[in-house]
């Protein structure tokens, strides 16, 4: 568990890049990343989820039906600075691989940390979507990311 966990519950208005927003219930409580698993999802070029593996379903707290067709930003935790996602999108837009540490929001308001890698899916020279694979981060990387992101908010 993160040393920052308080278990407190708060409501936060999250504004997304496309102008939509929602009030999310945030619970300061970490859910540990399961050993040995990879969370795998794919989106279309607009970020709409087209594939979710079982580990993604289990960790996100959403059903597969809820995830498919939804924008990937549903996982965005308000403690994640917008600049981190700008870096992600700028990198993959250039056709390159992006890697970083991300605090993800679960449906129940709790969170989990991942080391995420995102690559563009190119078929016959055309961008058809993105694949994102998340794996277990070390505690030291989580602590570093918590400190860094707090300065970027």
């Amino acid at each position: 568990m993160s040393e920052q966990d308080t278990g407190q519950v708060r409501e936060v208005l999250i504004r997304y890049y496309d102008g939509t927003e929602r009030v999310a219930r945030i619970v300061d409580q970490e859910v540990p990343y399961p050993d040995g698993k990879l969370i795998v999802s794919r989106t279309d070029p607009e970020g709409i989820i087209t594939h979710a593996n079982q580990a993604f379903v289990d960790m996100s707290g959403y059903s597969r039906e809820e995830l498919i067709g939804t924008n990937h930003y549903i996982l965005r935790h308000p403690d994640m600075p917008a600049v981190a996602f700008k870096g992600l999108w700028d990198t993959v837009a250039e056709g390159k691989k992006w890697q970083g540490f991300v605090k993800n929001l679960r449906k129940d308001g709790t969170y989990y940390w991942v080391k995420a890698t995102v690559i563009p899916n190119i078929r016959n020279g055309q961008l058809v979507g993105y694949t994102s694979v998340r794996r277990k981060p070390s505690r030291s990387k989580i602590r570093e990311s918590e400190a860094l992101y707090a300065t970027l908010m």
């Binding site: 691989k97 995102v118 078929r123």
Partner: peptide, 11 residues
Amino acid sequence: SEFMIDLIDTL
């Protein structure tokens, strides 16, 4: 096969 190769590329 493209999906699996993309996945391996991320690793």
